[in-house]
């Protein structure tokens, strides 16, 4: 039992109580309210809302755009994180602080800026041979913009923790650069990379502000799930909105939970075992460790 007299941090109980009560007020209470509201909904009501074709196509669109967006964000994010931790160059500090800008920028502004750039008469949109704004591709672009900081910031500390000597050791043991990456670096980075990916996906699934501007919002084509929630609310249909919010909450929670389970299970040695049994052509059997 800690008493404030002997604690390293004075005022432990006070700050714990204060933190917990604010946490419950700000985070848990709204979630509880959502669940409470949802508990009044009849089952057949739930079925009619969920079996709506418009909702299903919005769900499909939301899922696949956020999946591709977080995949792109976590791949580019990995490169950026590697570059920012392993190399030094002029202007590095500036780039480093620019990474967090998408988090600080109101997402609506990001959406308007991206739409202006990628619209058919925009700076980039007029140069590109294919349409970006008002297509699912535009939605993906907006999502990548908003989520890339998550993927970079989750990887950075992990990369920092890998000393150069590890790579050097691999080299002295005769590993090619590709093998060093696949067997040494990748297994160490993968759990954190997965965290970044899942954070990005959970975030982009619920992204509204930036996407409404760049998506054409045509039902069945470019209408994402959060827009459907807003359109239900605008018709004062609180029940429908609650059902969709709950659905999204469950998907995000399921996703994060699933990833946590995978991370528990994945250990570097299991990953290496798995990869050696993939028998890809470039894996030579001569692995000595």
């Amino acid at each position: 039992m800690f008493s404030s007299k002997y604690s390293v941090i004075p005022g432990f109980w006070l700050s714990l109580g204060y933190t917990l009560s604010w946490l419950s007020l700000i985070v848990l209470l709204p979630l509880a309210a959502l669940l409470l509201y949802a508990s009044h909904i009849h089952f057949d009501q739930l079925i009619t809302i969920l079996s709506n074709r418009q909702l299903q196509s919005a769900l499909k669109l939301s899922l696949y755009t956020s999946f591709y967006a977080s995949l792109l964000a976590s791949i580019f994010g990995a490169f950026l994180a590697w570059m920012l931790t392993r190399y030094s160059f002029t202007g590095k500090k500036i780039i480093d602080s620019m990474i967090d800008l998408p988090l600080a920028l109101p997402t609506a502004i990001a959406g308007i800026a991206l739409t202006t750039l990628y619209a058919p008469n925009g700076l980039l949109g007029s140069l590109l041979p294919f349409k970006v704004a008002y297509t699912p591709l535009g939605i993906i672009v907006a999502m990548v913009f908003v989520t890339i900081p998550f993927t970079i910031r989750t990887l950075e500390p992990i990369i920092k923790d890998i000393p150069y000597s590890v790579e050097e050791a691999a080299k002295t043991l005769g590993a090619t650069p590709l093998q060093t990456f696949l067997y040494v670096i990748f297994p160490m980075l993968f759990p954190a990379w997965l965290t970044g990916f899942s954070l990005a996906m959970a975030r982009s699934l619920g992204e509204y502000g930036s996407v409404v501007f760049i998506a054409a919002n045509i039902p069945y084509k470019t209408e994402i799930l959060p827009i459907l929630i807003v359109s239900k609310l605008d018709q004062f249909d609180y029940t429908g909105a609650t059902v969709i919010s709950l659905l999204m909450l469950l998907i995000s929670f399921g996703l994060l939970f699933f990833i946590t389970i995978i991370q528990r299970w994945i250990k570097p040695h299991r990953l290496i075992w798995f990869m050696t049994h993939l028998s890809l052509p470039f894996f030579s059997k001569k692995k000595s460790s």
Binding site: T116, A133, Y134, I218, V230
Partner: peptide, 21 residues
């Protein structure tokens, strides 16, 4: 004939005037 359905009057006029759509 409507290529985009913006969520509000403001964004609709933005699309027409700023983006030339």
């Amino acid at each position: 004939h409507a290529p985009i359905l913006d969520t509000g009057a403001r964004s609709s006029s933005l699309s027409f005037i700023q983006r030339g759509l």
